[in-house]
């Protein structure tokens, strides 16, 4: 098995045609090793979310190749992609995306509805409780999202992302809707996850959030502007971020 969890070569994503064509991604090559914690930065509209959607198997590239965990996913069918998302990926969204009518526990159990092997109710519950405990919410199992703070909601979402034990966690601006105290809590959790060996790819606008990552990829106009591990990145410069 390759050392790389993610191998992307020559990736393009084009919206529209002819004159109106928008190159959201315009030739991206990137590899992410197992266990890395990567931050993606860049100005608004630079293609970060587009890249995340493709990495997250929610979208397919117009051109190029994407190998995830040793398998080429760029040409997979919708059903195959669904299976990959369920088994290999955990999503953390800026807006949490919890189902409001369900308890924290039921929200975390959702991914196990769609696993290939049937998970018994007891096992699903046990796994969900374990995941919620790992984010410190063992006392909030039966609370609904509207009974939880933003930080707690995002922790529920992290538990949901972890419950199927995926090798890769994708977070698109995970702290974008949170105050600084909650942001620190969330970053602590991601930090611990990283230490336990999970690969994390995170999009963020905030330099101090990006500072938690070991590697910062800077994207601009659909291309990779820089990719470094030394804690420096043109994207940390406010002029670049402003576009």
């Amino acid at each position: 098995m390759s050392d790389y969890l993610i191998e992307i070569t020559g990736m393009k994503k084009v919206y529209g045609e002819g004159e109106a064509a928008v190159y959201a991604l315009d030739g991206v090559d990137v590899q992410v090793a197992r266990g890395e914690f990567v931050a993606i930065m860049g100005p608004s509209g630079s293609g970060k979310s587009t890249l995340m959607n493709i990495v997250g198997c929610l979208d397919r590239p117009t051109e190029g190749k994407y190998v995830l965990d040793g398998r080429d996913v760029s040409q997979m069918s919708k059903n195959e992609l669904a299976k990959v998302r369920n088994e290999k990926l955990g999503f953390i969204f800026q807006s949490f995306n919890l189902l409001p009518r369900l308890s924290a526990l039921a929200n975390v159990m959702l991914p196990m509805l769609y696993t290939a092997e049937d998970v018994s109710d007891e096992e699903a519950e046990a796994r969900a409780i374990a995941a919620l405990t790992s984010v410190g919410l063992e006392k909030r199992l039966h609370h609904r999202p509207n009974q939880l703070s933003g930080g707690q909601q995002q922790r529920v979402a992290i538990a949901r992302a972890l419950v199927n034990h995926p090798p890769l966690i994708l977070a698109d601006e995970p702290t974008g809707n949170l105050d600084s105290k909650s942001s620190v809590e969330i970053m602590d959790i991601l930090h611990n996850l990283h230490k336990s060996g999970v690969t994390i790819v995170m999009v963020t606008h905030e330099p101090d959030i990006a500072a938690h990552a070991e590697r910062i990829i800077c994207v601009k106009d659909g291309r990779i502007l820089s990719d470094g591990r030394d804690g420096h990145s043109p994207c940390l410069d406010h002029k670049v971020l402003a576009g």
């Binding site: 919708k78 059903n79 669904a82 369920n86 959702l110 509805l113 769609y114």
Partner: peptide, 12 residues
């Protein structure tokens, strides 16, 4: 959309 992101197939 969320269910699909979590692995629901169109058939589900």
């Amino acid at each position: 959309g969320l269910r699909m992101a979590l692995g629901a197939r169109p058939a589900n």
